[in-house]
Amino acid sequence: MEPSWLDPSWLSALALLAVALVVPAGMLIGARILAVKARRDVATKFDTYECGEEPDGAAWLRFHPRYYVVALLFVLFDVETVFMLPWALTLEQLGAVAWVEMLVFVAILMLGWGYAVRKGAIRWQ
């Protein structure tokens, strides 16, 4: 059968997604109803918990640039796997040509990887 976007199994998968939303939502709503509530609240109950220290300002601070480097590496390699997916499907028909092309592609990619390693993008110290 020719795969198609109208394949009815997509609708089944979407239905499961809806069920997977309803079941935990039901559990959370049930917990809302069953949960105890304090008759009288103390103000400190709603404080941010940071091990007993008074929280010093909001938590929304600047963070370390190494996370940006990880995000860049991720974009690089994730796009590469996106190219690999259709290649993996058609490898049998295309044969050695596709094999050589992927070899070249990965070789170029590994050059970039080597550069990232040399630059210390991977070492988090």
């Binding site: 089944s12 499961l16 069920v19």
Partner: peptide, 18 residues
């Protein structure tokens, strides 16, 4: 209906997993 199939079997699978 694929909707009903997915919803019912999905319910069984979700509840079983939990």
């Amino acid at each position: 209906s694929p909707w009903l199939h997915g919803a019912l079997l999905g319910l069984v699978v979700s509840v079983s997993l939990l």
